[in-house]
Design a protein around this nucleic acid. Structure first.
Lengths: 256, 256
DNA sequence: CGCGATTTGTGCACCTGTTCACAAGCGCCT
DNA sequence: AGGCGCTTGTGAACAGGTGCACAAATCGCG
């Protein structure tokens, strides 16, 4: 029940009519589909079924079809999806038809790696400038890019349009950096610092915390370990945890 | 997910040791609460209200209270939560009471940064070993750790228990590395390679793809750009406020 | 000792996202 | 041409998560 478009009337990419609302969960999966599609294209495939593509992207096929239907995608019933066409579609929706410039702030351990990460360039992102506050790092050249002082951000931003700012500084510096990025008009920030950023409305922040991912995995490890100990006879082998969470489960007690 | 117990026919349950099921969304937020709590503890605070803690963690206070109630936490009505106690509680649930050993495979650009990232050690994770397949990298020392050949993984794994494997290799090598990790008993994997891993049941995989994060931000940039170019719909946008506070907020946290 | 201020814990309604199941459409074969 | 098998697209049920609003509980104070 959304806008339907005539098949067989391929307009030109970039002339996207309107994308009013696209579920956030769908948006988060589109890049994964895109990666899988590129792999298929490299392998020479011209069409792909939802089942095969879903498999390559690690999702359910029904989910994939619904995702693609949301962006008014064109598959052919009985055949599948045209790989090249779908790539164009998704790239157009994601706004990847233009190369986007990224400003990276903080060239410490992680920032250094990000500056040299070729996965960005290969997917249409260009690191336009590197910044740091540590004067000992200014002037260093990483991957052909000069490290500038953060104070030069306004001048560089005026020079060329910056689509996205990446923060790879220590946590205490992150908020200040975010403020400076917002001040020069950046409205999308990828934050690697382990802290919460406060930004004005209209600015999008995504956070990636490597330690958090490990902690989530730790929980599942912990859970699995308890489960293996559980089914044994006389399961008292469970070691008493210092937190004392044993038997404190007051919720719902026991379903009667 | 899979386990469903029958209400009305337990009888035998008696003393249920731990709380096996905890909403996944809650688990994903606990580390964030933990970080905020540590910051509060460092600042000397002894108690904290749900409102304050939620603010520090960037979530809704009702959500935080519900999350904490899920793990049977004890706050004091009229007062708030005991910071130290809550830290113990969450760390216990996440299984962080023991120091977990991490094996990192792939010491390229990103792996190098991860090996030197101090955010791991500070949160209870110890990088136990570094591996790579590139013989030119074997023997290199990073942050006091020797880079070993991936073939030595079984021997090292036999030596000390590895809780989590981190894959920071190029995509083509990732599946093979995952297989080798699984073969030595690793049941939790953090994958930085841009590809889907297939692993047996019982093995948890979390994926972090830096380029995907940028592409999601790119979408929002694209959308914001189209919105400003298009006339407002429905005509309710009578005031052209520069802040653009009429935009429907879509800011959301991660959620895999 | 009771009262009010404060804050937690939670029932409930809402909303987003997922999954199932099937009709509709397409190509191919006879 | 017509039927048949295959695949998409989607309505509808389902599951899970979110946020409101309020009762219950606790502290401090007069």
């Amino acid at each position: 029940m959304s806008q339907h478009r005539h098949p067989g009337a391929p307009g030109r990419a970039g002339a996207v009519p309107a994308l009013p609302d696209l579920p956030e969960a769908t948006v988060a999966r589109l890049p994964e589909y895109l990666r899988a599609l590129h792999a298929l294209a490299d392998a020479g495939d011209e069409t792909v079924s939802s089942e095969a593509l879903a498999n390559a992207a690690g999702v359910n096929s029904a989910k994939l079809r619904k995702d693609l239907s949301h962006l008014g995608s064109y598959g052919t019933r009985g055949v599948g999806y045209d790989v090249a066409l779908l790539i164009d579609q998704i790239e157009s929706v994601l706004g990847l038809t233009q190369c986007r410039s990224v400003a990276l702030v903080g060239v410490g351990n992680l920032g250094h790696a990000l500056a040299g990460y070729d996965g960005f360039a290969s997917r249409g992102f260009r690191i336009a400038a590197l910044f740091d506050a540590d004067s000992s790092r200014i002037g260093e050249e990483i991957n052909g890019l000069l490290v500038r002082h953060i104070d030069e951000l306004p001048r560089v931003a005026a020079d060329e349009l910056i689509s996205i700012g990446v923060i790879a500084t220590p946590a205490p510096a992150a908020q200040s950096v975010a403020d400076q990025l917002v001040a020069v008009g950046v409205t999308s920030i990828l934050n690697f610092a382990p802290c919460v950023l406060s930004v004005p409305d209209g600015v999008d922040v995504r956070k990636v915390d490597l330690a958090i991912e490990l902690q989530i995995l730790s929980f599942h490890e912990h859970r699995k370990a308890s489960l293996t100990a559980l089914p044994a006879t006389g399961g008292s082998a469970l070691t008493a945890l210092p937190g004392g969470l044993t038997a404190t489960d007051t919720q719902e007690a026991i379903g009667t």
